[in-house]
Design a protein around this nucleic acid. Structure first.
Length: 304
RNA sequence: GGAAAUAUUGAGCAAUUGGUUGGCUCACCAGACUGUAAAUCUGGCCUCUUAGGAGCUUGUAGGUUCGAAUCCUUCUAUUUCCA
């Protein structure tokens, strides 16, 4: 299905696999720019723990959506989708190919496949739902969902408060069931995606993670986390690498224990990333040991 | 050399002190997930399985008993104490 649309090269894969470096190599080869689809690298207050590209890397290639938000701003996938599409429209004027890198599967999908349009929800409604969850338990919310949107009740994981609350907040603010907003057809995009997946043997991924965490600690992750400790309740800070250190600051974990927990939770995160990307069979997988030239020639062969 | 204690799945612990089909936590594995997503949640975890079950099991080898993780003996291993 060759088209004359521009191409968005999507570099995906688990954390610490080497996506940043690969993306830069690709962007250089095609003299283009990079947009990030990483749900934590948006935040300018978080540098060490999110492994954003280094200043020299950022100087080499123009990156977008890196540290362009504050942790105090509420920012959602929906916002990201809109901003990313608007930016891509501009970038594709100058470049036939643009690179997107990201480990956040939902965010990548939002750009490439699109989200459905949901009504805006007053934050008070979610607060109220969270309050009801805590005071009455999830059963009450499940019951409401069953009455209000039986289709979604059947389909979703009703044990997952996030899913239940999202569906209910949509209903309460629009008086229409969540499922009534779900798409009937694929969103149209004015570009074609070309997925490049980067992976490795499980053991190697874990090894890379462990080493990266040690480097983060050496680079001052503890100090960074300490400076954010007073804002630890913010959503942006519900993040591997920070939460564990907050536990340490509160005296619940020793420094060594916190570091071990960071490694463990990073491994689990990588595992979940793998689960997400595995179901996307458009991804062309490469091993992180493969040479960039091999990957580049693959891309060239796939692009006009 | 002597005495005592202990031995349950990868790890750590349970199992009304003989009552039947071995449970929990952690780790690990697998999965779900359309605006909290580095979040949140679900399942599995002795073996085999046609997924309904089937078989094996509490260090080892025996014994007592209708019945043993539980009581007795052998051996092995570990720990502690005395020499």
């Amino acid at each position: 299905m060759p088209t004359n649309k521009p191409i968005l090269i999507c570099v995906v894969g688990p954390t610490a696999i080497g996506k940043t470096t690969l993306a830069i190599a690709i962007a250089k080869a095609f003299s283009t720019e990079i947009i990030s689809a990483d749900s934590r690298q948006f935040y300018k207050e978080m540098t060490v723990g999110t492994a954003v590209p280094s200043t020299s890397e950022l100087a080499e290639i123009k990156h977008h959506f890196i540290q362009n938000k504050s942790i105090f701003t509420n920012y959602s996938v929906g916002d990201f989708e809109k901003e990313a599409l608007a930016l891509l429209d501009q970038l594709f004027v100058k470049h036939p190919i643009v690179v997107m890198v990201g480990g956040s599967g939902l965010y990548v999908d939002a750009v490439v496949k699109g989200l459905d349009v949901f009504p805006d929800v007053n934050p008070k409604i979610r607060e109220q739902l969270n309050f009801e969850l805590e005071s009455s338990g999830i059963e009450v919310l499940q019951k409401e969902l069953k009455e209000v949107d039986p289709a979604y009740f059947e389909k979703t994981d009703i044990h997952n408060p996030r899913r239940v609350i999202r569906a209910l907040e949509i209903f309460r603010s629009s008086k229409k069931p969540y499922t009534s907003f779900l798409r009937k057809e694929e969103n149209q995009r004015n570009f074609d995606p070309l997925y490049i997946g980067l992976t490795a043997e499980r053991e190697q991924i874990y090894d890379r993670i462990n080493r990266r965490v040690d480097i983060m600690i050496a680079n001052g992750l503890i100090e960074e986390a300490k400076s954010l400790f007073s804002d630890k309740e913010l959503n942006a800070l519900q993040t591997v690498g920070y939460r564990e250190l907050f536990q340490h600051f509160e005296g619940n974990l020793s420094k060594e224990q916190a570091v071990e927990e960071i490694k463990k939770n990073s491994r689990r995160f990588a595992k979940r990333q793998g689960t997400w990307f595995r179901k996307n069979n458009s991804i062309n997988w490469f091993d992180t040991a493969d040479s960039f030239s091999e990957i580049l020639s693959f891309i060239k062969q796939k692009t006009p």
